[in-house]
Design a protein around this nucleic acid. Structure first.
Lengths: 415, 415
DNA sequence: GGACTTTAGTAAGACTCTTTTACGAAAGTC
DNA sequence: GACTTTCGTAAAAGAGTCTTACTAAAGTCC
């Protein structure tokens, strides 16, 4: 990592960014109040606000007191928008957000075994419908985030391992990507779920945690030191090799049931019982269901133990079709963790309303759109805008880091 | 994380930092060459160099061509020094470094069962001897790093779990800390070894790897995304609960030998064989030794598999008394990893010359001393220096991040 | 060996941005 | 209704970089 040099106009950009950042946290503030909170002088604070208003990122909140006196300012949430898309196994979820993170339009559609191309068409149709509802044009989208199952190589941005028994698959991701244009940011769905739990779920304010998804398969998304950790090949948190030791958590569960029945364990479970049935039966005291869930708890404790020993987490959030039903198993799992892990993490069940994956995609799309919007400050202060498309895609726009005067806004050398 | 505002003089500091950073990478450069490399204009580059020379961080390299024409500049390595101390199980290692990372004095001493207080006295004595050799005074040390076995809480900076069967222990760390004054930065020894392998060992240039120490116990240090990952309680990488499933790798190995002998496996190993003997015997084809090392390989493969599945590493470096002898087992381990891990990491044996722990401590101490030295730029441009002691201790001085104009150097508000 | 070209380094003026100091006006308070 | 507090702006000074221009040293070519 190497330093880039700073310019005099750059400090204005920097201060404007600080002011906008402040306004995003504390809604309506006056000019001098901004200056105070920023630690600058009144004239500077005022000038910075003027800059932000000119760029269109901040506006005077229409107050009842019409006089220009004591005017309050707020960020313009509609200055940019982001698109979030979750390509799930059975449904396609889509949301359009503004800069405040508010969802201004939302769509969900079931897609039973659609081909990749059909899926892409559906996605584009959904997007256009949502945009129409929000009164926006495709060009108004500054960032797009697509969540898909599978492992994404962080360098090539390609799917290297798609979970074959889920809808995803490289073809879908590619088709959707092409259909949407605008080069979206493709991210693993479980990683997004982790971000979702952090943005609006059970992991708010937690800097070291994992989202453990237990459904058709078992996988996890890791947030370490406040940032998503993807690993060298984007495979961090892939706890089970698909195909190994009876992965596919759901199948494993049902197989246990079948074996128990054959073994003669008394049970009220039907032959075609679903995982939900197992949980229900266990709650009613069914012996076989109870035993099966005991096995599940042991297996989850093993995974959580591995996670905690390696990266030392504060919290593990359980989600997914099976994981989100495990509230009754938490005590059992906790007991098993004691004596296995130096510092057992807290356990929680994922928030149940809405989709954590879409929440995470929304959160990422909002952050990316914000990064793009902030770029306007750079652009206006320089002759050559040179909007670097990669800059927007960089995750975590790193507060405190100066935006590299390098690329576009360099002065010309003497001829 | 919140932004701080920027000041006009701050851009000078920022540019000076960039110039120094550049000079540290590419040794002797002329004023205009610096300007060119930095992407600034000649006048600015020249002014920045002048600033750095005034502060004493850069000097003109005495060239044969006496004329001021074409003068070259280099960083002043002696502008600050750091102290690195490794409190090992049997020996105390100490090194004094300059800003270039060069070790200017080094001491090693055996300490058999010394009390914590004695140990601290020995450490202080060593330090003074090393300083005398280097012609320095204690006040010349800008940073001190102490490596100890045990888990350090990153918030309280206290030892929460000291490995009882190693020399460390909280008392030693405390005593050494007090004896050295100057509030040293205490770090887990295996974490330091990881940093050492990255700075000057087998992990140079690798951003995601683990140092797996196999000796009396098994533990690992993780570097993720280029930075040390300590975890919520500083226990990341503590793969075995001390006391569980026959931890203490060395004991486990010897117990396997004993069991094998009783079980009648043919062997040439004596009853009091050491781990080194086992490796030697296995090399000679001894059946029992071979079997025991097979067990060891299986165990290491399990640990490495856990690490790789959770954080997806590029490389795992094996070190420690037993780990560094495992070159012959790497193929075996690799085979076991296939089919267990999606992307098996590369494997390597730790560099054998010198001590990785001390190397890591040296690297950290150098970085901290550099951060302190850089602080002089801030100080000289402000009326109130207000040297924040915590700033120096922050690991990874984060290039690209601006040093928070906040604290000391704020203007006074209008009365 | 001498003239020409390239390059290192500096000097002066313009521009940007922050700070300081000062001033005017609106809003609250007794 | 007068006084005080606070919001907001204006003007000048300080700091830093950029542009342009200039000097002088070192190569280079004939």
């Amino acid at each position: 990592m190497t330093f880039s040099t700073a310019d005099t106009p750059l400090v204005r950009v920097h201060n404007a960014r600080a002011a906008l950042d402040l306004l995003r946290r504390e809604a309506p503030l006056s000019r001098v109040e901004i200056a105070r909170r920023l630690g600058t002088t009144r004239p500077t604070g005022s000038a910075v606000v003027t800059t932000l208003v000119e760029v269109g990122l901040v506006r005077e909140v229409p107050s009842p007191a019409a006089g220009g006196r004591g005017a309050l300012y707020e960020p313009v949430a509609e200055a940019a928008h982001g698109l979030a898309l979750d390509v799930g196994g059975r449904v396609l979820r889509l949301a359009v957000t503004d800069l405040s993170g508010r969802v201004v339009a939302r769509r969900t559609v079931e897609h039973h075994g659609a081909s990749p191309r059909e899926l892409a068409e559906v996605a584009v149709g959904l997007r256009d419908a949502a945009l129409a509802e929000a009164g926006l044009a495709p060009a108004d989208l500054s960032a797009t985030v697509v969540g898909v199952p599978g492992v994404l190589d962080p360098r090539s941005h390609r799917l290297t391992r798609a979970n074959p028994d889920r809808a995803g698959g490289p073809a879908v991701a590619d088709a959707v990507t092409r259909g949407l244009g605008h080069e979206p940011q493709v991210e693993n769905d479980i990683n997004l779920a982790a971000l979702g739990e952090r943005a609006s779920g059970r992991a708010q304010g937690v800097d070291d945690f994992a989202f453990l998804s237990v459904g058709t398969g078992v996988g996890s998304g890791l947030v370490l030191g406040g940032a998503l950790h993807r690993g060298r090949h984007g495979a961090a948190g892939e706890l089970e090799l698909s195909g190994s030791e009876g992965s596919a958590a759901e199948h494993a569960l049902l197989r246990l049931v079948a074996e128990g029945r054959e073994g003669g364990t008394p049970t009220s479970l039907a032959a075609d019982a679903t995982p939900a049935d197992v949980f229900e039966a266990a709650a009613g005291g069914d012996p076989l269901a109870t035993a099966v869930l005991g096995e599940l708890a042991a297996r989850l404790a093993r995974h959580i133990g591995d996670l905690a020993r390696v990266v030392d987490l504060e919290l593990v959030v359980l989600g997914g079709g099976i994981g989100s039903r495990c509230a009754g198993l938490l005590d059992d799992i906790e007991t098993r963790l004691h004596g296995t892990v130096l510092f057992p993490p807290r356990l929680a069940i994922a928030s149940l309303h809405g989709s954590p994956v879409l929440d995470g995609a929304v959160s990422l799309a909002t952050a990316s759109a914000y990064a793009v919007a902030i770029g306007r400050l750079d652009a206006t202060s320089s002759p050559a805008p040179a909007a670097d498309p990669d800059t927007a895609d960089r995750d975590r726009p790193g507060p405190g880091s100066i935006p590299a005067a390098g690329a576009g806004r360099r002065r010309r050398r003497t001829p």
